[in-house]
Design a binder for these strands. Structure first.
Lengths: 191, 191
DNA sequence: CTTTATTCGACGAATTTGTTCCAAATGTAC
DNA sequence: GTACATTTGGAACAAATTCGTCGAATAAAG
């Protein structure tokens, strides 16, 4: 099981999925993009859904790495949280399969997408809650329930995704609006 | 036969074709985008290919209108030719179904695409040749064979499409390079 | 050479898709 | 209202596409 070939397939699949979406992408498309025969894919993956999950996991990993880097670069919890929101929303507007999987109504019926969606949501709440906890230890934030606040902020971000997708706003406008909401959170949270 | 409904279908189909390409677009996709039942499409069009032809014809018409407007706004043949090339290439990089139909290898095998391609090529040669003829009458250009020169310039533009699609250049860079080539034509043509 | 890892062509079964047919709905003129 | 033409979409079906499997071919490793 060459990790090389597997990664090659995942990256090729990522490009094709991003272009055509899950349903319209065929295993042949992926195989052709990866420069392999179709049946070779089944040596590495059980089925199409598993390929998609791997692609999403790979993108999520990249996103997490990017976010962690930005978080570690900021010292205050306020800056960490701001970095988190900015990177997350920026990545969201330029789509990618993770964002698509989390939103596309076309995929909404698939059970395996529900799994991804829920897993990732829990993970995000943990990330945000972690930052908030740090801010509480720091005395930057009041001693609120970090998990509850994390859920609130995430829900708020998700609420912003819909107008982002309808494209009535530009990316910059949206980022500005989101930061305004974040500021409101801060003024309510900061000591 | 409501021209309204037909136009509505053509515009909806244009969006879907542009996103997914000819093959991956289903009649259901088009019908859904147009807010109609699938079989209603067959009241207005014989089959999927005819819908696509109508979309391309519609886009070509728009492109021609845009080009004519720009050509009429310029007085010298030099400016007319420059406008023509600029608009054509700008439209090409932002794609659309006409550009896709003229280039997508995936469609290359279809006979009906060959028809569109050839028809439109002849039309473009005529357009360019017309401008050159005007320039010859104007004494802006030497008394060369307008049709032959038109073919040469078109072929030159088509040669530029490939690097445009590989995206190693930005649009602006490409326009600059193309204008350089046009200048070379002028210096060889102008009296 | 033997064994293990990897690739691919060919195939069957299940699904999707293009297209047709016909009845229902809608509009239009009397 | 009736009579008529226009427009729509549900159901059905054949053809094409697609997923996933199997076994054989090829390459790599020991």
């Amino acid at each position: 099981m060459s990790a090389n070939s597997k990664q090659q397939i995942i990256e090729a699949a990522g490009i094709v999925f991003e272009r055509f979406g899950f349903k319209k992408t065929t295993m042949d498309d992926i195989a052709y993009a990866a420069g392999k025969g179709k049946s070779s894919l089944y040596y590495y993956f059980k089925n199409k859904e598993e390929v998609f999950e791997a692609v999403v996991a790979h993108e999520a990993k990249q996103l997490v790495a990017e976010i962690n880097k930005a978080i570690n670069a900021s010292h205050s919890a306020v800056d960490k949280l701001r970095s988190y929101v900015n990177i997350r929303m920026k990545r969201f507007v330029q789509r990618g399969n993770l964002a698509t999987a989390l939103n596309d109504n076309f995929l909404a019926t698939f059970a395996f997408i529900e799994k991804i969606r829920n897993n990732y949501r829990d993970f995000e709440v943990e990330m945000i809650a972690g930052i908030i906890s740090h801010g509480i230890d720091n005395k930057e934030f009041k001693p609120i329930d970090a998990n509850f606040a994390g859920e609130a902020i995430l829900t708020c971000m998700i609420g912003f995704e819909v107008p982002l997708l309808t494209k009535t706003h530009t990316t910059e406008e949206s980022v500005k609006k989101i930061n305004n909401v974040i500021d409101m959170f801060f003024y309510g949270i900061c000591t």
